[in-house]
Nucleic acid binder design. Structure first.
Lengths: 204, 204
DNA sequence: TATTTTAGCGTACACTTGTACGCTGAGATT
DNA sequence: AATCTCAGCGTACAAGTGTACGCTAAAATA
């Protein structure tokens, strides 16, 4: 019961996903990908694509899931680093920047399809980002004892800013990138401080 | 010297631009547009397109400029409203939401091409948004006497959040949209308050 | 061992795309 | 009035697209 067959199928399925991610770049978004080119890079005939996915859309949604998974692993990693004594803000930012450097195409997918042309994609990405926000909100709530609604809004604002800065970071290197990170950290402090203030005020 | 000729040319040029904007929608982004379809809607032969633009790219950049212009007019309008006694935050948010309702496709263009597949587009959009940020930063600097670097970072964070909320607003209506606006306003208050605090602290 | 299942292939087809090329006729210029 | 300019057209083509259909061989099942 080795399942030689199923194993091989999984392998080319992964090859398709890998090929698709690989064809994403600064100049190539998901909607630019063609079934035929993806199949070609994965080493199968165009028509064999359908043995794995009904559609390019189905492939894409799978890719969003994969990127979401990476994002969650990232969060866990950041939490570990913070727990072992890192500054919250700079550790989080650093971790996120590593994500962008290591998996730029996963990030690009989330970034672009968040406001892309398919509602299914937009919802899928929104769902992944919401996980991210909720995690952060939960953390903030525990840490600062503010009410949960304020914690959520604070987390949402932070994630928004981190994401957008990530997008800009994709086009930058070296000095100007460090400046970006610096700005981002200040902006997070603004939100943190302001959020703390209003949450306190409101809880009275 | 009526310039009948030039006048007519301008007219079909505008028809092309209008057709292109019209074909943008939630399900259709600029890179999905085809030269032929745009020409068809504008009522000219595909090959006549080249009498006006070298490229679809050139058309697109023109469209970004136009959207940027709208954005600047918007700012002026918001300033007038504030000057005549409106709350800064709620007036700004309201004005921006009007933009999204009135010119959703101009907004979509800026939103998507900001992280799109053409560097030229990304830079063009970034330039327009930078105007927006600088205007706001200037206003904040004058209003709160904080140092200009902090004012800039504050403005940048605000614009980022407003833009992203705008993107979400495109998919929402009624109740949930009002909730979004409510959240957005809180988030802006966070930044405003936090920004004020750090700017003060730093200027000593 | 005989039978069924299925991942992958090749061919074929109907479309759509961008754009090269040369023509025309109505304004502009002289 | 004679000439020039040029916005718009029609034809044509090569390239690329998604996918329907039927085949094959190897793995799975009986």
């Amino acid at each position: 019961m080795a399942g030689v067959r199923a194993q091989q199928k999984m392998k080319t399925r992964q090859a398709l996903i890998a090929a698709a991610f690989n064809q994403l770049s600064a100049e190539h978004s998901f909607s630019n990908l063609s079934l035929r080119e993806v199949a070609r890079e994965a080493g199968i005939a165009p028509t064999s694509f359908y043995r794995h996915f009904k559609d390019m859309n189905e492939l894409g949604l799978t890719m969003v899931d994969e990127a979401g998974l990476t994002l969650r692993q990232l969060m866990r990693q950041a939490r570990r680093r913070i727990a072992s004594g890192g500054s919250v803000i700079s550790t989080s930012v650093l971790t996120f920047m590593e994500f962008i450097d290591n998996q730029p195409n996963q990030f690009r997918l989330l970034l672009r399809e968040r406001s892309g042309t398919s509602k299914a994609f937009r919802s899928a990405v929104a769902r992944e980002i919401k996980h991210f926000i909720l995690e952060l909100a939960h953390y903030l709530e525990g840490e600062t004892q503010c009410d949960s609604h304020h914690a959520y809004m604070q987390a949402e604002a932070m994630v928004t800013i981190v994401f957008t800065s990530g997008a800009e970071a994709l086009d930058l290197e070296g000095q100007s990138r460090e400046e970006l990170v610096e700005r981002l950290q200040w902006q997070l402090r603004y939100i943190s401080f302001g959020g703390y203030h209003y949450a306190q005020k409101n809880s009275k």
